[in-house]
Nucleic acid binder design. Structure first.
Length: 587
DNA sequence: GCCGTTTTCGGCCCGACTGTTTTCAGTCG
């Protein structure tokens, strides 16, 4: 059973307990454990194998015992007992927006929906159409209409289950911002929520506005083209756009804007932790300001910095706000000084259009275009990391010759002695299924350094995959970077299973850097593993993997991943100036 | 059910919106 399924199981339990009127904190505890497991970097099963379940936040004695049951017998007896007490027909209904456990239970009970009903949602839809729902206590005519609307949206698949990549979310947010800015009473607009925190994929878009005329701004906002107005109130509104994406707007007056920014940026868990901390100081936090619990007086804050200062804390960068220890660190003044885009001195993973009969895509631009772009970005160096030549249909000797000619080409290039931007002749080499590298040993003479990466057989079991990667990382001293380590493609392909402790060990032994691939489809290493790597003092290298020079601008997404992983400048090798970096790369 | 700079017991973030209600429950973020 994978983490997502375990999280779903725990959420089902939370829903069941809610219906059974269990202690509400027990329900919160189950939901918290589910959240925690869903966002884990390693498989719960692997942690269980290693006897490390107690490392999962929110998982205590009781849930550990249930997970023990699950992994040793395939089921949890206690859960099965509880599940017998609630109708199973409620669970499909929880997928319909606006229907939670309580409503689902009432509907199933009152409408006598059987557990073996094939399509519970269709059955409820029929009941709504035939006006069987309005008479139920707690429901009414409007509920019937709302349920039909929600089911229609659900059935059309208009609510996108899959999340957006960052540039897609950025584009939508910019459209909405442009629309809002047409109104003179909009004094400032900010992107908040997960997009501001630069989470790898985005669900909803959250936008905040400062204004002295809230009603006018909200009326204007809902004229943005949409398929459904989800809700509207005096402090905000939510729209479902034609592309299936939701945009939430929140409004605040200038003098309380700081509290609003903080509240609406999240994450939920960061806010919970911050509010708990506030309570220890006798302060209760909300989106309007900080309330003194004793006197009931509320202080408001114009800026977010002032809001945090109101708690005696330094401002916490949005990328850190995931309840990974940032509140505790800020209390003792130990927040990291995060790496910035301006710290980056070079991009080492670039694909040029030099045709070396590569195993994968050739780049689109020649060396000089990359050099010009690097120069514009004020880089000191770049690495040409074309894919290795195909190994099928070519002899080793042919490959060696290609690599030799390529090196000569770059070295004799008119721009080879570029004054500003230095060149490293590198290569991105496939890690073959058996852990061997897809480049003949002799050819290593014609490169400065190697990025190794997985491009095939992504589904090997964890043990085998780990062995494969460790072999590749140990294959040759010129192996310096492990490229897009998990191989994930966001919203499309899961990353590979690796024993990260072992990977970290070999990286440390050989001083190899893990790549943070900045391509918005990859963002690989994932930030959660970057966080673990930083704690183990593993070096990282942020690259764009550009197949055309224009994509070198995507570096900022990689830097965001690094920041979310608590990286300081010193954790990132390509923040080193040229001489120092050269020493590291060619050691 | 979880957790600890106030605690191994006694707390547990906070509020908006909606519909069905005459003061609140459910859902959501």
């Amino acid at each position: 059973m994978m983490n997502l399924q375990i999280a779903q199981l725990l959420r089902k339990m939370a829903a069941a307990y809610l219906i059974l009127n269990e202690n509400r904190f027990k329900i919160i505890a189950y939901e918290r454990a589910a959240d925690s497991i869903e966002h884990l970097t390693s498989e719960v099963k692997d942690l269980w194998d290693d006897g490390k379940l107690d490392q999962i936040p929110g998982v205590g004695e009781a849930i550990t015992k249930h997970l023990n049951d699950l992994f040793s017998t395939g089921k949890v007896r206690h859960f099965d007992e509880i599940m017998k007490k609630v109708p199973q027909a409620i669970f499909p209904l929880l997928l319909v927006p606006g229907i939670g456990p309580k409503k689902a239970y009432t509907l199933v009970k009152e409408l006598k929906i059987k557990d073996d009903e094939d399509d519970v949602i269709a059955e409820i839809e029929f009941c709504a159409k035939t006006h069987q729902i309005a008479p139920i206590e707690g429901f009414g005519e409007k509920s019937e209409i709302d349920i039909l609307e929600a089911i229609a949206t659900y059935k059309k698949g208009q609510i996108k289950e899959n999340r957006m990549e960052l540039p897609v979310a950025d584009a939508i947010a910019q459209d909405v911002i442009l629309h809002l800015k047409k109104l003179a009473s909009v004094e400032a607009v900010d992107i908040l929520g997960s997009l501001r925190r630069q989470v790898a994929t985005i669900g909803d878009i959250d936008i905040a506005v400062v204004t002295r005329k809230p009603a006018e701004v909200i009326e204007h906002f809902i004229t943005f083209p949409h398929q459904r107005l989800i809700e509207q109130g005096p402090t905000g509104a939510s729209l479902l756009l034609h592309n299936g994406r939701q945009v939430d707007l929140r409004i605040q007056k200038p003098d309380s804007y700081g509290a609003m920014l903080q509240y609406f940026t999240g994450s939920k868990n960061h806010n919970i932790k911050l509010r708990s901390y506030g309570l220890t100081l006798g302060k209760s936090l909300n989106e309007h300001g900080i309330k003194d619990v004793k006197t009931g007086s509320i202080r408001s804050f114009h800026t977010e910095e002032a809001f945090y200062r109101g708690l005696g804390l330094p401002w916490i960068p949005p990328e850190l706000r995931e309840d990974k220890g940032e509140v505790e660190a800020s209390v003792v003044g130990k927040l990291p000084k995060l790496v910035e885009v301006g710290d980056i001195k070079g991009d080492l993973h670039l694909h040029s259009n030099y045709d070396l009969k590569p195993s994968h895509d050739l780049g689109a631009d020649p060396l000089e275009v990359y050099l010009d772009k690097a120069s514009a970005l004020e880089y000191e160096y770049i690495g040409l990391s074309d894919h290795n030549p195909k190994i099928s249909g070519q002899t080793s000797q042919q490959i060696v010759d290609i690599m030799k000619r390529r090196k000569e080409f770059y070295e004799s290039h008119p721009r080879a002695r570029d004054r500003q931007v230095k060149i490293f002749v590198m290569c991105e080499v496939d890690i073959r299924p058996d852990g061997k590298l897809a480049l003949p040993e002799v050819a290593f003479e014609y490169v400065d350094a190697i990025i190794v990466a997985i491009h095939s057989n992504f589904t090997q079991p964890r043990k085998e995959m780990t062995k494969r990667v460790v072999a590749a990382l140990s294959a040759h001293p010129k192996v310096r970077i492990f490229g897009h380590p998990t191989g994930r493609l966001l919203t499309k392909r899961e990353g590979v299973e690796l024993d990260w402790d072992k990977i970290f060990t070999i990286c440390k032994e050989r001083d190899i850097a893990l790549e943070i691939n900045a391509h918005p489809m990859r963002l690989d290493l994932p930030d959660t593993i970057v966080f673990d790597a930083v704690r183990e003092n593993i070096k990282l290298c942020i690259n764009t993997d550009s197949h055309a020079a224009q994509f070198m601008d995507l570096m900022r997404y990689g830097v965001s991943v690094a920041r979310r992983g608590w990286c300081e400048k010193s954790d990132i090798v390509n923040t080193m100036e040229y001489t120092e970096f050269k020493k590291w790369l060619l050691k």
